[in-house]
Design a binder for these strands. Structure first.
Lengths: 198, 198
DNA sequence: CCTGAACCGGAACGTTGCTCCACATATTAT
DNA sequence: ATAATATGTGGAGCAACGTTCCGGTTCAGG
């Protein structure tokens, strides 16, 4: 993203030390606040936790989605990387898909309100939505087509639709103990499964 | 609810005429605003549309959920009533379930942000959530057990879970044209279906 | 050391939910 | 008809929040 400058040298002026320090502080503070107050925590609260002004947050992360993305980038990457690996080591493409979805669900479910944020009003959090899709979409596509090609599942399901549906099912998990998205997702997978024809 | 007084006479003082008039005006205004701005429309906006003060709204509908409930009560009732009817006239319990879910989805999908509101943070909209459950829960239970008893679907799925899952899948439908909750719900039903065992 | 660019803090503004109470009005009693 | 009282109404006021903006500060390069 725009906050990185890989080589660090050359033409453009190097980033100021206090700036990168603040950015780190902010990421740490945000991560901490997110677990207790969810990704919708007031900006002021995060700023206070980090001991900086609000202006500083907006400078580094123009939208809330940018901040959330930055905080969870590592985990999203890990999930993305797991896709091809699972495809290689799992018993079947279907098994790989199932296990990848498990990972995805674990991720969404352990972050308070992440799933909620992901799907909320089209306008807010657009960047987050986009990042998820860009990074995880292709992985899902790969898993899905592999499973279709092997005849494990029926064709006709779009990766976007599947990811979004799973994301939706994970919404509001905290609010009620008798709701466990995993059971429904299991059902979904069952429906996806191709009835072995002859 | 507390706003009705069937016989209108007797012990308790009858409701003031201007009050019931305002209530009607409010319901109409709210319904109108909901279609254009969603169920999250600012209270002020609804008050303005109805030509009353905010205090009046809060008097008649203490929480936003009360207002939403009142506006959609008729349709919820209709959906609830359709359950037993479908069970009687459909080809099979599974067919009845499928058609009932269709109705449910239609309802959620045509009201901007209704599904979103239904599941949002546990705290807000509790009353709406409760009303849905109280009214539609038993119907869903009936359909579900009938389908299980007839061997159409596999046992082990809770009505609450199913309803909530369907509600979740309907969230944010407007935001993206390539997402159609119905396809996923179809998949879910497919997974629910009992593989005919000899 | 000097200077400009980058950075910082937080005041300020607009929007929203919700409460509260002086005032207005309908209903009932006289 | 008039007064008494319960009931309903309007909107100012408060708190919380997102977001912008800009005067002052601090770093990095020369």
């Amino acid at each position: 993203m725009s906050t990185e400058n890989p080589t660090g040298k050359a033409s453009v002026r190097t980033k100021r030390a206090d700036a990168v320090r603040n950015q780190q502080t902010l990421l740490a503070a945000a991560a901490e606040v997110f677990v207790t107050s969810g990704v919708d925590a007031p900006i002021r609260q995060i700023a206070a936790k980090a001991g900086v002004g609000m202006g500083t947050i907006y400078r580094h992360f123009p939208t809330r989605a940018d901040l959330v993305t930055a905080v969870y980038r590592h985990q999203i990457e890990a999930c993305a990387d797991a896709g091809p690996r699972l495809l290689a080591e799992a018993d079947s493409p279907f098994d790989a898909l199932r296990r990848w979805i498990d990972l995805f669900v674990d991720f969404l479910v352990t972050k308070h309100g992440l799933a909620d944020a992901l799907q909320s009003d089209s306008s807010r959090f657009t960047a987050l939505h986009t990042y998820f899709l860009d990074r995880l979409g292709p992985v899902c596509t790969e898993l899905l087509t592999a499973a279709v090609d092997s005849g494990d599942i029926r064709p006709g399901t779009q990766p976007y639709e599947l990811m979004r549906g799973i994301g939706n099912l994970c919404i509001g998990r905290d609010s009620d103990p008798r709701y466990d998205p995993r059971r429904l997702i299991e059902l979904l997978l069952l429906g996806l499964r191709q009835p072995r024809q002859t």
